[in-house]
Simulated assay, not measured.
Amino acid sequence: MDVREARRVAALHDYDILDTPREAAFDEVANLAARLCGTSIAVVNLIDADRQFFKAEVGLDVRETPLETSFCAKAILEDDFLLVPDARLDPRFGCNPLVTGDPHLRFYAGALLKTDDGLPIGTLCVLDTEPRTLTELQQQALKVLANQVWAS
């Protein structure tokens, strides 16, 4: 693990939020994100060293997944936002088992959750089983909601 990644994971652990129960405020944000973007799946997730923990989720019914299949682990390498209109056509995700098999994900958009000093610790993301894109307004709304999630 490089120094930046170690700092990022340490910062995440400082929040002491991993493996905590669901909370209505986070669930409301995930539900709103799915409705605003017209997707069947939305997640507030936190990226640990070896897994992603879902603080809130709509449409998945799981609380964590390994990093090997995580779209969000790639999103935290971006500056603020990752948009993948069709995962089958993206070399980062085309061979991902979540794309090639159940649930056959096609679309991903994620806005970063960052610490006060800019370390990415997770995302607010929306996913779907159909290729799509987001309008500028939907992208902006997802970014604003992500900022609100972490500000609270």
Score class of each variant (00 low, 15 high):
4 R>S: 14
5 E>F: 10
5 E>Y: 06
6 A>S: 15
6 A>T: 10
6 A>R: 13
7 R>A: 15
9 V>Y: 03
9 V>W: 02
11 A>G: 04
11 A>C: 08
14 D>R: 11
15 Y>R: 03
17 I>V: 14
18 L>Q: 06
23 E>G: 03
25 A>C: 11
25 A>M: 12
26 F>Y: 14
29 V>E: 13
30 A>W: 05
34 A>C: 10
35 R>S: 14
36 L>V: 03
36 L>F: 06
37 C>M: 04
39 T>P: 02
40 S>Y: 05
42 A>N: 07
43 V>R: 02
43 V>C: 09
44 V>C: 10
44 V>S: 10
48 D>H: 04
49 A>R: 13
50 D>S: 09
51 R>H: 06
54 F>Y: 09
55 K>G: 10
55 K>I: 01
58 V>F: 04
58 V>D: 13
59 G>R: 00
61 D>Y: 09
65 T>P: 00
66 P>N: 09
67 L>A: 09
68 E>N: 12
69 T>A: 13
72 C>F: 03
72 C>A: 14
73 A>L: 09
73 A>E: 12
74 K>L: 14
75 A>T: 13
75 A>S: 13
79 D>Q: 13
80 D>N: 13
81 F>G: 12
82 L>V: 04
82 L>A: 10
83 L>A: 10
84 V>T: 01
84 V>I: 12
89 L>G: 03
90 D>I: 06
91 P>D: 14
92 R>I: 07
93 F>P: 02
93 F>M: 07
98 L>C: 08
98 L>K: 07
99 V>G: 05
99 V>N: 07
100 T>N: 07
101 G>S: 15
101 G>A: 15
101 G>R: 15
103 P>M: 08
105 L>N: 07
105 L>C: 07
106 R>S: 07
107 F>R: 00
107 F>T: 00
107 F>G: 02
107 F>K: 00
108 Y>F: 11
109 A>G: 05
110 G>D: 12
112 L>M: 07
113 L>W: 05
113 L>R: 03
114 K>H: 07
116 D>E: 15
116 D>Y: 12
119 L>R: 01
121 I>R: 01
123 T>K: 01
128 D>H: 02
128 D>R: 01
131 P>Q: 04
132 R>Y: 06
135 T>F: 00
135 T>Y: 03
136 E>A: 14
141 A>S: 15
142 L>W: 01
143 K>G: 15
144 V>L: 14
144 V>C: 11
145 L>A: 09
145 L>G: 08
146 A>C: 10
149 V>L: 10
151 A>R: 15
152 S>L: 15
152 S>P: 11
